[in-house]
Amino acid sequence: MASLLEQAIGALNGAVGDYLARTGNGLATEMCLVRDNRPVGLDHASLRDTGPRVAVLVHGLMCSEDVWAFDDGGDYGAMLQRDLGVHPLYVRYNSGLSIPENGALLSRLLERTLAALPIQQIILIGYSMGGLVVRSACHDAKLGERAWLGRVERAVYVGTPHLGAPLERAGRVLSRLLGRVDDPAARLAATLAELRSDGIKDLGDADLRHEDRARRAPTFALRDPRHPVPLLEDFPHFLIAGSRFDDRLTRTLFGDLVVTLPSATDGRWRHDAARPIEGVAFVDRVHHVALAHDARVYEHLLGFCGGAP
């Protein structure tokens, strides 16, 4: 899929993409649909055969659509097309922008897409930060009464930190502490840490709205354990969480090494749960990045997308 150059630019955008966009830098990625490693307009020939049911795939922080690619070149989108006849639409975006900004951009992109293509049903698939962007877009569409929201039949979140990422919250506290140390090197380190993008900072509390971002505070604990923007009730939501470990306690604490299980399951995970949780799937012995291209994850994804909405 994407070239090494696009992957590098995706990583750069994730790290400092807000700065790139603010300064009008040509390296800033604009949100677009991608086909064969190239951004395509909605009038592009490759989109003319788009069917009535599409899957919109939104990648995560510091990556591009390449994150979906298996070693053999396949990806969830192509596999869903093969197995369910769902037409994949890959989104590329600047993951360094704030999640609310990207949510609004995605909402507008989907509105334009709906106007240009004969789409009846939309499956939203978000990986990691992409899941939060999907949620933010739905929130934006709900407020703006956008037509595309009515076509969404379901959303699947893969390794999405619905309740925030402890790593970012720890980084926030560390950065604040460093800034208070009366030492020029420590202050420099704090300044460098603060250069991380708005997108990264939003991951700490899974901020989906601008007003949530404004309330941010440097603390390890979640600002709001019950997320201020609940999952919309307009369509079903499915969650896929990964864990690097088998042991119950360790996997609860560390999850896939980036997102904890309680966060990936939007608080539904209980380490002593005996029965499966409805709408939630777990995959063991997988790290965060591999969740985007794992055969076991795809089996769950297929099950979630194949059932009656």
């Binding site: 300064t23 040509g26 390296l27």
Partner: peptide
């Protein structure tokens, strides 16, 4: 022109 725009961006970023 996207390539040139990116080269410009890289030059600007390195300068910054």
């Amino acid at each position: 022109m996207r390539g040139l725009s990116r080269v410009r961006g890289l030059v600007a970023l390195l300068g910054d």
